[in-house]
Computed example of a mutant assay.
Amino acid sequence: MNTAALRQEVFFLAYHLHWSWSEIMDLDTSERRSFVKLLSEQIERENAQIKAARKG
């Protein structure tokens, strides 16, 4: 993984979950990526619900 991609993962988790850099970096790489995937899926579900509610 390149530095830019790692920064994006760290930023994404820190921004949404309010975890510190050290908490995120203490995670195993596969575990960190699993959290990114879970969070992304949750955000997609919430956005779809908002979009559906706006359509009525």
Rank of each mutant, 00 (worst) to 15 (best):
E44G: 10
H18I: 04
L38F: 13
S40F: 07
L27F: 03
G56H: 11
F35N: 02
R45W: 10
A14W: 00
V36P: 02
L13S: 00
R33C: 07
H18P: 02
R33K: 13
N2I: 11
M1P: 04
R45F: 08
E23D: 10
R32P: 01
E9V: 01
E31G: 04
R7H: 09
K55Q: 13
L27W: 01
R7L: 08
A52W: 13
I24S: 01
F11M: 09
W21R: 09
Y15K: 08
S30N: 08
R32S: 03
T3D: 10
A52E: 15
L38K: 10
A53Y: 09
L13C: 03
A4I: 07
F35Q: 03
R7A: 07
W21L: 09
R33S: 08
E46N: 15
R32W: 03
D26T: 04
L39C: 06
T29K: 00
A14C: 07
N2E: 11
E46F: 09
K51D: 14
S40W: 07
L6S: 03
L38A: 11
Y15I: 03
R33T: 06
T29H: 04
K51A: 15
E41A: 12
L13M: 04
N2T: 14
S30L: 09
E46V: 14
E44M: 12
V36H: 00
S20N: 05
D28L: 08
H18T: 07
W19T: 01
Q8E: 08
D28P: 02
T3P: 05
E46L: 14
T29I: 04
E31D: 12
R7Y: 06
M1L: 12
S30H: 06
E44K: 13
I24K: 00
L17T: 05
R32K: 12
L27T: 00
K37G: 04
N47A: 15
L6Y: 00
R32D: 01
E46R: 15
L13I: 03
S34G: 14
R45H: 13
A4T: 08
E44L: 11
A48L: 11
F11G: 05
E41V: 09
N47L: 15
L17E: 04
A52C: 14
E44Q: 13
R33L: 10
W21C: 06
L39E: 01
V36A: 03
M25Q: 05
M1T: 09
F12Q: 00
W19I: 01
A52S: 15
I43V: 14
E44T: 11
Y15L: 06
W21Q: 07
L39G: 01
G56C: 11
I50D: 12
R45N: 15
L17P: 03
K51S: 14
I43C: 08
Q42P: 08
R54Y: 12
A5R: 10
M25R: 04
